[in-house]
Design a binder for these strands. Structure first.
Ligand SMILES: [Mn+2]
Ligand SMILES: [Mn+2]
Ligand SMILES: [Zn+2]
Ligand SMILES: [Zn+2]
Lengths: 140, 140
DNA sequence: TACTAGTTGCAACATTGTTGCATTACTAAA
DNA sequence: TTTAGTAATGCAACAATGTTGCAACTAGTA
């Protein structure tokens, strides 16, 4: 139901008190329909068929959606950010899996406990960023 | 003892069967003297006083030292690689700490167990990449 | 010393993301 | 419904980090 995703996107954007613009709706709709975390480039490609959206606007919309916590940003060793919608399951801190063959990224639900990491004296813990690497089911 | 570091650098490079060139020695000497993982840029700055080394050569030397496992590369959310010498303690897989204030990076010695992460069906584990973020002793 | 494969310097390029600013368009108020 | 104000957009230029191709150089060896 792509229409359902679009409706949900519009509703979420409005709930944030933000302006419901075509770009925001199109981008959030794409992300809502996507199982895995995808890159700026991949979103750009999905926007190609319809009238294209400027790449700077895409960066700015992704930043806005992240600020509003409608999506989250995943960092990776390939220096490319990936984005994924937030829901109840992954709105908290969580780990990610990245396939070393196809570079696909998914969210995992676990994260090790802070107390498992003894830092040097004087150091203050804030958060953990964890990526499990391996082969996804497609690439195995 | 900077001279000691230089001697050690020469020895390690020779032990790898690689040519002992001025650039390699200067770079590995800098890394041996450094407690924390430092960036390409930071190494470049430390090379400034003496006759400068081309930035492409610096990239290529860092790649070579990494291939030879004399140093290792640390990925970070700021899309900048950092490099640190290998020794007995950190030659194995290990976690890193990154200060969210000054961006300094150090190696930790622990890493969670593979079995702690249940992957989706069909996924194959390879390795874990973990960064603890917080404030270092200087910034706390 | 001369040879040669490995190494370097330089210029050009690629990728990912950012900034400034004029123009456009969403929304609320009239 | 129209208007006005502000938020959002498009475009060009820029920044940071890393890569590639190739000619010139040099460390190690015979
Ligand atoms: Mn995630
Ligand atoms: Mn390390
Ligand atoms: Zn894969
Ligand atoms: Zn710090």
């Amino acid at each position: 139901m792509p229409n359902t995703f679009k409706t949900a996107a519009e509703r979420r954007i409005r709930q944030c008190g933000g302006r419901v613009t075509a770009g925001r709706v199109r981008i959030l709709t794409i992300l809502l329909a996507e199982q895995q975390a995808i890159t700026h480039r991949e979103i750009e490609r999905r926007l190609l068929g319809k009238l294209p959206l400027d790449r700077v606007t895409l960066y700015r919309v992704l930043e806005w959606l992240t600020d509003k916590q409608l999506i989250h940003k995943v960092v990776s060793d390939d220096r490319v950010w990936r984005f994924h919608t937030n829901n109840e399951l992954n709105s908290h801190q969580h780990a990610h899996f990245k396939c070393t063959s196809c570079a696909s990224v998914i969210c995992l639900d676990e994260l090790p406990n802070e107390r498992d990491w003894s830092l040097p004296i004087g150091y203050q813990f804030q958060e953990i960023e964890l990526t499990v690497k391996g082969l996804c089911a497609e690439c195995v």
